[in-house]
């Protein structure tokens, strides 16, 4: 089974963490994709050209990150991270959807910032970052709901916060003490440490 990833992708990191947390990482062959290199990007089996992409030994392709996480979660291993039924599932997948949605806005804001002069729009960047701010405010307000067993929702949240801080710095922490405290504790997990790109450590 092969997992295409790029070291900085928060969505791929989510899947790598699921594999590590469940003790199935040794069954994954990791393939590094360099999204800036068209040749490397074209080799990703996902027609959308995105990572992560999981190719099973029987040739079945699994995209995108929530589905890959669910698939890895169904392999025999340590306790599950993706509840399959009831309120627990809705709670976990909803948190994952919010975290991934905020992450999408962080990615778009960063792309906008990196456009060349003339094509860059402060308005677009500001709009995307406003979504991020509102999303983080909601998460801070609901931070008490982060207590309890770790699920795919927590993992998505940890990956999103790490990526956001890497791209846009530590300012987000000022008005969100509970979320920041949660993140600092979560980031100490060995799976988070192991999947942290070196440049993120020094950021």
């Amino acid at each position: 089974m092969k997992l295409w990833y790029s070291p900085r992708s928060p969505y791929a990191r989510k899947c790598r963490i699921v594999a590590i947390e469940r003790g199935v990482a040794d069954r994954l062959e990791l393939v590094t994709a360099d999204l800036a290199d068209p040749k490397s990007a074209q080799a990703i089996p996902n027609p959308l050209g995105k990572v992560p992409a999981l190719l099973l030994d029987d040739g079945t392709l699994i995209i995108d990150s929530p589905l890959i996480a669910e698939h890895l979660d169904q392999m025999p291993g340590l306790p599950n991270l993706v509840p399959m039924e009831g309120p627990a599932r809705r709670h976990a997948t909803q948190l994952e959807a919010i975290a991934d949605g905020i992450c999408d806005a962080v990615v778009l804001a960063n792309l906008e910032r990196n456009r060349r002069d003339g094509e860059r729009s402060e308005t677009v960047k500001t709009q995307q970052l406003a979504k991020v701010e509102r999303g983080l405010d909601l998460l801070e307000r609901d931070a008490a709901r982060l207590d309890g067993p770790v699920t795919i929702g927590h993992i998505a949240l940890g990956c999103m916060l790490g990526y956001h801080e890497f791209r846009f710095g530590r300012d987000w922490r000022r008005t969100r003490p509970r979320l920041a405290a949660w993140y600092d504790a979560f980031a100490r997990r060995p799976s988070m440490q192991e999947t942290m790109p070196p440049e993120m450590k020094s950021a």
Partner: peptide, 15 residues
């Protein structure tokens, strides 16, 4: 297989 096909196609179409 039917589940993965349905969800993968949804992800591809959402893309």
């Amino acid at each position: 297989r039917a589940r993965w096909d349905a969800l993968r196609r949804q992800a591809l179409a959402d893309g």
